[in-house]
Nucleic acid binder design. Structure first.
Lengths: 255, 255
DNA sequence: CGACATTTTGAGGTTTGTCAATGGGTGTGG
DNA sequence: CCACACCCATTGACAAACCTCAAAATGTCG
């Protein structure tokens, strides 16, 4: 099974542990404790709640539920989506290890979207009230939290640009290049990874249909840009893919 | 001239004043000082920098410029937009009095988009470093700041839903209903307002062309949903417009 | 192995974009 | 004051991108 290549339980911690330890977590360079010294990491450890495991398709939180905690992804992948009045869903993001879930709920007291595990995953629960208390004591933590929220804002602006301005081909290239960069930042291959989400999820995220995604995969394959087997992707020509993502090159519709 | 109906300089402060006073500002119920007691508002006043006036089309900040301050809109309107590698621009939002500009820059040290005045406007400069200092002393301010950032995140998610899932007609209805609600929250008419932005800006924001916007305006007019004169809009049937925005009703393409 | 879900591929339709021409408002200079 | 230029908006005809519907192929899981 090549299912688990990129994320084989990254933190070698005894499985029975209930409390998370940021120090021992392989994601602490990317996650909330980034840049904190040992003393401050210990203080953060104090307030981190239970770890929580989720099975594939299990929901971490749902729209309208009261907001109590943020969640840091330890391993696995999630998707977040909104559902509008007419019942249509829009996926607003895919989250991987080291990323924070739940920030949309900070504006109100309730979650504004659903978060669902795309595969068996684990998160650290971070009670927000306790985190806020800690902000007063650890200014570096507050600054970093603001950076993370700012990052989320710019990430979403980039998606707006994608949805508002780009054609299907460019959207899909941006999607692949983005995944590539995020895996690279985590020490995994930037050219070989498995898509954790269905074609339908990708299409929904990119404002396209499942058929369009399938056709784009076929087109990129035919052009020798990528190789695809099931959900495993290999980027054959990352540079050209980046050029398509940047809009400086195109991939002709027909061979 | 009916140009200035909604925003006739809302704060009757001596024009020579250099420093802003949040207390005297008509927007303090919506803006950063929301919910603060008098003592805390005074502390906020201490750190607020100069007010800055901008003419129509003048730029408040540009992409790539170093980030020093957030800006609160006192009166007037702004647009923020990104420019991608191929030079295409995407408007990420329209800001009006009481709203905060510059939060996208918090993730890095540089602004991530351009902010331009849509009409003669004025902002309060809020040096971010001093604001961060104040967070330690005024927890209520920090909490509210987090709410504002969270609001920005959910706002952008709503735009993602709009761009990813809705057809042109629904997008435009959402746009009008959103403006209506924001003017209502500021004490202005929810059914009569002037569009501060060009058709081109609206189209860019909604992921449509200027021609599509023009056709949608004509269609809505023909259906008796709205009345339009140049940039002045009157919502004749707000309820039906809301239904179209919610996706529960449609406005037939041909009469 | 069989039932079900997911993905791929094809054909045709719809929405929206593109291109082009016209109309109207505003400001400037004669 | 009018003529002209310029910008923005409107409208029409056509084209292209993408969606919808349908069917077959492939993969997944009990």
């Amino acid at each position: 099974m090549s299912q688990g290549i990129p994320f084989p339980n990254p933190a070698p911690i005894s499985l029975g542990a209930i409390k998370a330890s940021c120090r021992a977590c392989s994601m602490h360079q990317l996650c909330l404790p980034m840049g904190l010294d040992d003393a401050d990491i210990n203080r953060l450890d104090q307030i981190i709640g239970q770890r929580r495991r989720l099975m594939r398709d299990e929901r971490l939180y749902g729209m309208g539920e009261p907001f109590r905690s943020l969640y840091a992804v330890r391993y696995g992948h999630f998707k977040t989506y909104q559902i509008n009045a007419s019942g249509e869903q829009q996926i607003t993001g895919f989250q991987m290890a080291g990323e924070l879930l739940g920030m949309d709920a900070i504006s109100g007291d309730r979650h504004h979207c659903d978060a669902v595990a795309l595969e068996d995953s684990e998160v650290c629960e971070i009670p927000f009230a306790r985190l806020e208390e800690l902000f007063g004591e650890v200014p570096a933590l507050l600054r970093h939290f603001h950076r993370i929220m700012g990052q989320e804002i710019t990430r979403e602006q980039n998606v707006m640009l994608l949805l508002g301005n780009m054609r299907a081909e460019q959207r899909f290239a941006v999607f692949l290049v983005n995944l590539s960069a995020r895996y690279a930042a985590r020490g995994y291959s930037s050219t070989d990874f498995g898509l954790r989400m269905s074609r339908e999820d990708i299409g929904n995220y990119l404002g396209l249909t499942i058929e369009s995604i399938s056709r784009l995969l076929s087109r990129f394959k035919k052009q020798g840009l990528i190789a695809v087997d099931k959900r495993e992707v290999h980027l054959v020509e990352p540079a050209r893919l980046k050029a398509i993502a940047a809009g400086t090159e195109q991939c002709s519709p027909m061979a």
